[in-house]
Measured scan of single mutants.
Amino acid sequence: QEEEKEIKRLAKKFNASEEEARRAWKKAGGDPETAEKILKKKG
């Protein structure tokens, strides 16, 4: 599933848990760029 792959990639890229990545993904409405910004800010 595309979403799961994206979440795993985000978690790995930002050294975050999949739970954090999933939360960022949901907050971003499934937009990878926005999710990255959220995780970057958090990191």
Rank of each mutant, 00 (worst) to 15 (best):
Q1P: 14
Q1R: 10
Q1S: 13
Q1A: 13
Q1N: 13
Q1W: 13
Q1M: 14
Q1K: 12
E2Q: 10
E2N: 11
E2V: 09
E2C: 12
E2I: 09
E2R: 09
E2M: 10
E3A: 11
E3D: 11
E3G: 07
E3Y: 12
E3H: 10
E3L: 08
E3W: 10
E4V: 07
E4W: 09
E4K: 06
E4T: 07
E4I: 09
E4N: 08
E4A: 09
E4R: 07
K5D: 12
K5V: 11
K5F: 13
K5N: 13
E6L: 12
E6N: 08
E6S: 07
E6P: 03
E6Y: 12
E6T: 08
E6I: 12
E6G: 05
I7P: 01
I7V: 08
I7G: 01
I7Q: 02
K8W: 08
K8M: 13
K8R: 12
R9H: 05
R9E: 06
R9D: 05
R9L: 07
R9G: 03
R9A: 09
R9S: 05
R9V: 05
L10I: 06
L10W: 02
L10V: 02
L10K: 00
L10C: 01
L10S: 00
A11T: 04
A11G: 03
A11W: 03
A11V: 07
A11R: 06
A11D: 00
A11N: 00
K12N: 09
K12M: 12
K12H: 09
K12I: 11
K13Q: 08
K13D: 04
K13L: 11
K13S: 04
K13P: 00
K13T: 06
K13R: 08
F14P: 00
F14S: 02
F14K: 01
F14H: 06
F14N: 03
F14W: 11
N15G: 11
N15R: 09
N15K: 10
N15D: 07
N15S: 08
N15P: 01
A16R: 09
A16L: 13
A16M: 11
A16Q: 06
S17G: 04
S17W: 02
S17F: 03
S17D: 05
S17L: 04
E18C: 11
E18N: 06
E18A: 06
E18I: 15
E18D: 08
E19M: 07
E19N: 06
E19W: 09
E19A: 10
E19S: 07
E19R: 07
E19Y: 08
E20K: 04
E20I: 05
E20C: 12
E20Y: 04
A21Q: 01
A21P: 00
A21F: 02
A21K: 00
A21C: 11
R22H: 05
R22L: 09
R22Q: 05
R22G: 03
R23N: 13
R23F: 11
R23Q: 13
R23S: 10
R23M: 13
A24T: 02
A24S: 03
A24F: 02
A24W: 02
A24C: 03
A24H: 02
A24N: 00
W25F: 11
W25C: 04
W25D: 00
W25G: 01
W25P: 01
W25E: 01
W25R: 02
W25N: 02
K26W: 13
K26F: 14
K26Y: 14
K26T: 11
K26L: 15
K26Q: 15
K26A: 13
K26M: 15
K26H: 13
K27M: 14
K27C: 15
K27I: 14
K27A: 14
A28S: 09
A28T: 02
A28W: 01
A28G: 05
A28V: 02
A28E: 00
A28D: 01
A28M: 00
G29A: 09
G29W: 05
G29T: 04
G29P: 02
G29R: 10
G30F: 04
G30T: 02
G30H: 05
G30I: 01
G30E: 03
G30M: 04
G30V: 01
D31R: 05
D31N: 11
D31P: 01
D31G: 01
D31A: 04
D31Y: 03
D31T: 03
D31W: 03
D31E: 05
P32A: 11
P32Q: 08
P32N: 05
P32L: 14
P32C: 11
P32V: 14
P32M: 12
P32Y: 09
E33Q: 11
E33T: 09
E33V: 12
E33D: 10
E33S: 10
E33A: 13
E33C: 14
E33G: 08
E33F: 12
T34M: 15
T34E: 14
T34Q: 14
T34G: 10
T34N: 07
T34S: 08
A35F: 04
A35E: 00
A35W: 02
A35Q: 01
A35C: 08
E36F: 04
E36A: 13
E36V: 05
E36Q: 05
E36T: 05
E36M: 08
E36S: 08
K37S: 09
K37T: 08
K37L: 10
K37M: 12
K37A: 14
K37P: 01
K37N: 11
K37V: 07
K37W: 09
K37Y: 09
K37D: 09
I38W: 07
I38G: 02
I38P: 00
I38F: 09
L39P: 00
L39V: 02
L39Q: 00
L39S: 00
L39A: 00
L39K: 00
K40F: 12
K40G: 12
K40M: 15
K40H: 12
K41R: 13
K41A: 15
K41V: 10
K41S: 13
K41Y: 15
K41D: 14
K41H: 14
K42H: 12
K42W: 15
K42E: 14
G43N: 13
G43Y: 15
G43T: 11
G43H: 14
G43V: 13
G43W: 15
G43C: 15
G43Q: 14
G43E: 11
